[in-house]
Amino acid sequence: MKKQRKPKLAVWKFSSCDGCQLSLLDCEDELLAVAENIEIANFVEASRNVVKGPYDLSLVEGSITTPHDAERIHQVRRSSKVLITIGACATAGGIQALRNFKDVREFTSIVYATPSYIETLNKSTAIADHVFVDFELRGCPISKQQLVEVLSAFLNGRKPATPSYSVCLECKRRGTVCGLVTNGPPCLGPVTQAGCNALCPSYNRGCFGCFGPKETPNTNSLASYWKSLGTKDPELLRLFRSYNAYAESFRKESEAHEK
C-alpha cells in the first residue's frame, strides 16, 4: 500500500490570548502522533518554517476585531479545505466581546495615548460571522482531549464525539455532588456545553460557562430561579457576561439584567 501524503495543517491566530494554540503544543504525549500523521505546515507559534498553502485543515483561534482581521479571514478560508475554529474567541467573540456592549471609542480614548492610531471594529465577532466554518470547537481554553478527538476524527473521516449537552451530564457521571443544590456558588453548568469534564464543579467551584451555551439553553429559567432566591441583577449580568458574553443566549440573558 502506498503511503498517502500527510494532510497539511495550518494554525491561524486572530484576536486572542494564544491559550488555545498552546493546547495543541500542550498535547505532549499525543504531539508526536500528531506530527507523524499531520504535516504541521503553518504554525508560527511553534515554528517559523512556514510551508505555503493551500492547507487541508486550518485551525483558527481568535475573534475578528479589526478591519485587517476581517479581510485576512477570507484569505484563510480560501486557502483551507477544512476550517475549524477553536476556543471562545473564535466561536463567540471571546472576552474581548465585552466591548460589544459599550462604545469602543470610549475605551480607546481612555486606554491609548494616541487613540487615532487604533483601527478597530465596533464589535468583536466570531469567525463564523464572516466565513463558512466546518466545525466549531468550544472552550476557554479548548480541552486538549477534545482537540485530539477532533483531529483524529478529521484524519479518520468521522464525526467528532464532542457532545453539545450540558455540563451536568459530566458532573453526574463523575459523581460530583451538585453545588447548586447544596448551597455552592452559582453554576452555569445546566446551560453550558460539556467538554471540560466538569472541571470547576469537581473543585467546588461553579461552572463559569467557558464552553458557551449548550444546545437549547434555558438561561431564563435558571436566572429567574436564582433571582427568586435573592441573586441581584448586576450579579446575574456578570455571570452570563464573561468568556462567551456574545454567544446569543448568554448575551440575551445578560441584557435582560441590564438596567
Binding site: 449537552y165 450540558s166 451536568c168 457521571r173 453548568g189 445546566p190 449548550k214 429559567s221
Partner: peptide, 11 residues
C-alpha cells in the same frame, strides 16, 4: 418554561 433540559433528573 422551567425545565433546563440539563438532564440532572435522569442522571
Amino acid at each position: 418554561a422551567r425545565c433546563l433540559s440539563c438532564a440532572n433528573c435522569t442522571m
